[in-house]
Each structure stands twice: as structure tokens, then as C-alpha cells.
Amino acid sequence: MADTYSQIYIQVIFAVQNRTALIQPHWEEELNKYITGIVQNKGQKMLAINGTSNHIHFLIGMKPTCCLSDLVREIKKSSDSFIKEKQFSKFQFRWQQGFGAFSYGQSQLNDIIRYIENQKEHHRKKSFQEEYLAFLNAFDIEFKNEYLFEWLED
């Protein structure tokens, strides 16, 4: 009997609405664990997760039966509710619409995992806007500025 074999690695990036710096260090790890649980409960494999106070990156090993848009929608919806339920933020928390998704090969995994793990250090030198635009350009993704995240001045 034939089976399906695949190797699909996707990095997902999305931001807090208006790029507000609401993800606090004292609860960030709990948020990352919660998101990891969602990914695993949906049958996918979390390879790396990290971010800064205003956005998040994660890398998953994805099965071909997974609909990435549905997975990201569930992660945003559930983690948004989780943050509100835990009262992590005294401000209105919401993820911004949209996300970036970038694919990688097996030989690139160590580099991208290291990149995700070093997000805080990386963003001491480069803004989220610079980083995101660099991803779009590096992956040769056409975009319109008016449909990108709402940027706050860094």
C-alpha cells in the first residue's frame, strides 16, 4: 500500500496589531508553549519559536494535509483568547491581520532555527519592518505597500 512522504518546512511571521510592543518577557515563554501546543495538536511539528515584544516567528515541519491559513488563523484566535484569559496584557491585545510564510529546505534548517532563536539580538540592529521587507525581497514575493502590516515608526 502506498503512503505519502513529504518534507515541508515553513517559517511563519506575524505581528501584534499596530505593531504595539505588548508581548512581555515574563509571559512570552508561556505564550510560546501555548502556540507550540496548538501546532502539535494540529498534527504539525514545531521546530523553533521566538520573537520580540511586537511580533513572532515560528518554524514548523508541516504535513501536506495541513492548510497553513487555517493553522495560522487557529493559532492567532486561540492565543489571542489565551492572552486575554490569562490577563497577560492590561492593554487590548490582538494579532494583526495577515502573516508571512516562507519555505525552506532540509539543508537550511539549522540556519533558520538559529535565526529564530536569536530574534531579540537580531532586532537590536534591524527593525521588524526592515526584516519583513528583506524576507519578501529575498523570496522574490511581489507585494503592495498598502497591504503590508501597519508600521509604526521605529
Rank of each mutant, 00 (worst) to 15 (best):
M1L: 05
A2P: 15
T4Q: 12
Y5Q: 15
S6K: 12
I13Q: 07
F14C: 12
F14K: 05
A15Q: 06
V16N: 03
V16M: 01
Q17F: 13
R19A: 02
R19F: 01
T20C: 01
I23Q: 04
P25I: 03
H26P: 01
H26Y: 08
H26C: 09
W27N: 06
E30L: 01
N32M: 07
K33A: 00
K33Q: 13
Y34R: 07
I35H: 00
T36V: 15
G37R: 14
V39S: 05
V39R: 07
Q40N: 15
N41K: 14
G43F: 10
Q44V: 14
M46P: 15
A48L: 04
I49W: 13
N50K: 07
H57T: 04
F58I: 07
L59R: 00
L59G: 05
I60Q: 05
I60L: 10
T65C: 08
T65E: 14
C67M: 13
C67I: 05
C67K: 07
L68G: 12
S69I: 08
L71F: 10
V72S: 02
E74T: 03
E74F: 11
I75N: 08
K77T: 12
S78Q: 15
S79D: 04
F82I: 00
I83S: 08
K84F: 12
K84S: 13
K90W: 00
K90M: 03
Q92I: 07
F93C: 07
R94N: 03
R94K: 03
R94D: 00
Q96H: 02
G100D: 05
A101Y: 02
F102N: 08
F102Q: 06
G105K: 15
G105W: 08
S107A: 14
Q108K: 09
N110A: 15
I113L: 10
R114M: 11
Y115A: 09
I116S: 10
Q119F: 03
H122K: 15
H123A: 07
K125M: 12
K126E: 10
K126H: 05
S127L: 06
S127C: 10
F128E: 06
Q129T: 01
Y132K: 00
L136A: 12
F139N: 10
F139S: 04
D140T: 09
D140P: 02
I141K: 06
I141T: 05
E142N: 11
F143I: 01
K144S: 10
N145A: 04
F149S: 03
F149Q: 00
F149K: 00
F149E: 05
E150M: 05
E150N: 12
